[in-house]
């Protein structure tokens, strides 16, 4: 894979074209609209339940009426974009369109960069769509967008990009769509398992929680978990949300920065893998 060291207009142009093409693909994908529908329904369900609950009990305390809807939207949209990213490169490789693209004036940096930007813009677009819907809801009910909600929305951008970059990395590292999906789901499961490993260990079908292998497993998992706290997007989201709740600006910025750095590292890793492994299936 050739690599033009000069960051010229050519690379930006190629990246922007890839970005436009992928955005167009997402725009024409039925999955996008299914996701928007699911996210909208989930959000509507939460908001209606909340409104009903306030009607019944007279009051509710929330760090933001739109937090749960936003979380549901983040989850559904983030998962969709992650799955789209994890299949995108391996699918192009499998179909052969990647090879055709690379006959021309484009390199791995432009391609991966364009792809990530397209997912980022897609996320921002979807977010804007949801926010318009919520604004209508807020205007109608009196619910408010609290500062923490905005902070979580802000944090969600690097976190979703982190998951997308992870998907892109897996997609680059694998040759087939099936393999990409399998690896990505495995990684997600491992990250989730690590995230909830203490709770999972509590569920272990061992009568005695002081059974030595279990204690050892707990110690090992706690250590791994501690390390993964700064790598896993789930852990970073929880950390960032806690930072928002505690109004800890430093931790918030730090979390967002770690997520952003992870995006850059994963993007660089994807570029390297593609450069090393080529574009052919």
């Amino acid at each position: 894979m050739g690599f033009d060291r000069r960051l010229g207009k050519g690379r930006l142009r190629a990246a922007w074209l890839v970005c436009q093409r992928d955005l167009r693909g997402l725009l024409f994908s039925p999955g996008t609209y299914l996701v928007v529908l699911l996210a909208g329904l989930a959000a509507h369900l939460f908001l209606n339940t909340l409104a009903q609950s306030i009607a019944d009990s007279g009051l509710a305390v929330l760090s933001g009426a739109f937090n749960l809807p936003i979380y549901s939207v983040l989850f559904v949209t983030g998962l969709f974009l992650a799955l789209a990213s994890v299949t995108s490169i391996s699918r192009e490789r499998e179909q052969g369109t990647l090879e055709v693209l690379f006959y021309g004036p484009i390199d791995v940096a432009a391609y991966i960069g364009g792809k990530l930007v397209s997912f980022g813009l897609a996320y921002l677009g979807l977010l804007a769509l949801y926010l318009v819907c919520y604004a209508l809801f807020a205007g109608s009910t009196g619910f408010a967008f609290a500062v923490p909600t905005w902070a979580v929305i802000g944090l969600s951008i690097p976190v979703v990009m982190h998951v997308v970059a992870l998907g892109t990395f897996v997609s680059t590292a694998t040759r087939r769509v099936r393999a990409s999906l399998a690896w990505f789901l495995l990684i997600l499961l491992v990250l989730l398992a690590l995230q909830f490993s203490p709770d999972l260990l509590e569920l272990a079908p061992v009568g005695n929680r002081f059974y030595p292998p279990l204690r050892l497993a707990r110690i090992v998992l706690e250590r791994i978990n501690l390390a993964f706290t700064w790598v896993s997007p789930f852990a970073l989201l929880i950390k960032g949300t806690e930072a928002v709740r505690r109004a800890d600006a430093l931790l918030y910025v730090y979390t967002a920065a770690i997520s952003s750095c992870s995006v850059l590292v994963l993007a660089a890793g994807s570029m390297y893998l593609m450069w090393k492994g080529g574009v052919r299936s």
Binding site: A55, G58, L59, V61, L62, G64, A65, A146, P148
Partner: peptide, 10 residues
């Protein structure tokens, strides 16, 4: 618990 939270009242 904290200042970030909003009290919604009917």
């Amino acid at each position: 618990d904290d200042e970030g939270e909003v009290l919604y009242l009917r």
